[in-house]
Simulated assay, not measured.
Amino acid sequence: MMKKIFAVLITALLALPALAQVVTTKGVATITYDNKLMPTDVERAQRAAQVASIERYYAEAGEAESENFEAIRPQVEANLDKFIMSSTVLSEQDQPALRKYSVSVRTELNVTKLRVTLRGAAKASQPAGAGNAPMVYVFLGREVAAVKSFDDRVVKRAEIKVDRDIKTSGSVRGSEGESIKSNAISTNANKQQTSKLSASQTVNVETGGSTNRKQDEVTYRMLSMASHKTSVTSVFSQSGFTVADPDFVLGDGDMKSVSADFSHGSDLTPATMRALVASLRKAGVPLLVLATFDVGVPAQDPATGMPRVAVTVTGRVMDVSAAFPREVASVPPVQYFAVAPDGAIATTKALKDASLLAAKEIVSRLNAAGVR
């Protein structure tokens, strides 16, 4: 019993970094002072290091988040105390000969306030009275159900070329004679024949062939994402987007086609995409968010010994309001991991964490692209 409780506690602790609202990070800064290092110079260096720690957090979060930080940098620098909960000096170095002072700090960031400030900046950039366009998101979880492999098809051939050269020569020599004795005449003849035969043969062999390889056929089993629907919708709604439920916008045939396409591949067929666009335009919804969550096979976590499941997320956002739909944001394949006492729990947890983090990443990329 104690072992099980201990395992659950470890799982809970491992889950905290992914969704934490308070993040610990580090920052380094170097300043140049005039003649002598003054307390104001030390304070200036520490504040620069604190700003660097926030910049490092956004840089590690990805390109879109880093771009979003630049939009609120002036506000952050002017109100550091609101965003930094604590700051500890790790090391410092004074170089009087160069008149340089360096400091390294560890800070605790209030990520919630940073996100609120970012949303406020996004709303402020919109025209008066404007609101975020409605969106429909379709999150599809899947795992490999079967893999059909094909043997290589090998074709061998050999070409044999034979050259022969035969030469013959011969000669015949003969002589005849006769003799007369008494009343008889006798004749005689002799014949001599010689022949010569020579032959040569050259054999050339050329071999070759071809090998045909066929791609494995992978079939996926679709997984339900219904239990994560509320939390994902909350992420989009809190970011200012108006979320339309796909059950009321897309038809039953649309969802069946989407599931069928993703159960055999990693993209939608043109027919399915055209049907989705038609349904969205009919409902007046301009944005479509598509994301797939590929669940890997549970493996043993080297740190805890418990099952660990990886989920690979790929997403794209389409704007269907124009005459020709266009992709306004995309999420390249990103992996998220979850550890739990058994494989089933790890899979559920990995899908939950991945869906929330994917929603936040999509929001960041939409903000960076100016889509509100």
Rank of each mutant, 00 (worst) to 15 (best):
V162D: 15
V243E: 01
P39Q: 11
A244G: 03
V277N: 03
L288S: 01
V235W: 01
A7P: 03
I84A: 04
A12T: 08
I160L: 13
A275L: 06
Q238R: 08
F262W: 01
V313Q: 01
N35I: 12
A184G: 15
S102Q: 09
P127H: 07
V317M: 01
K191H: 13
T312W: 02
S149I: 12
N132C: 07
L9P: 02
T207Q: 14
E43H: 14
V154R: 10
A329S: 03
E217K: 14
A199F: 10
K349R: 09
F337R: 05
R326A: 11
G120K: 14
G174M: 12
R47T: 11
D163C: 07
D319A: 02
N110R: 10
A350I: 00
S321N: 14
P127I: 06
L223Q: 00
Y58M: 04
T168Q: 10
P96E: 08
A322S: 15
K360R: 15
S91G: 07
L98A: 15
L223D: 00
P17S: 11
E63I: 11
A323V: 09
K156P: 08
A130Q: 14
K196G: 09
L90Q: 11
S234H: 04
Q238T: 04
A323Q: 15
T304E: 08
P302E: 15
V136R: 01
A359L: 02
Y137P: 00
K4T: 08
E67L: 05
K26H: 13
D252P: 05
N188E: 13
N132A: 12
K36P: 04
S125P: 07
M273T: 06
S87F: 03
S91Q: 09
M318P: 00
V22M: 14
V103L: 05
K360D: 00
V23M: 10
K360S: 03
F6T: 09
R157Y: 13
K82A: 12
A64P: 03
V205T: 15
F83E: 02
K349Q: 05
V313R: 02
S169E: 14
D41R: 11
K4M: 09
F241H: 01
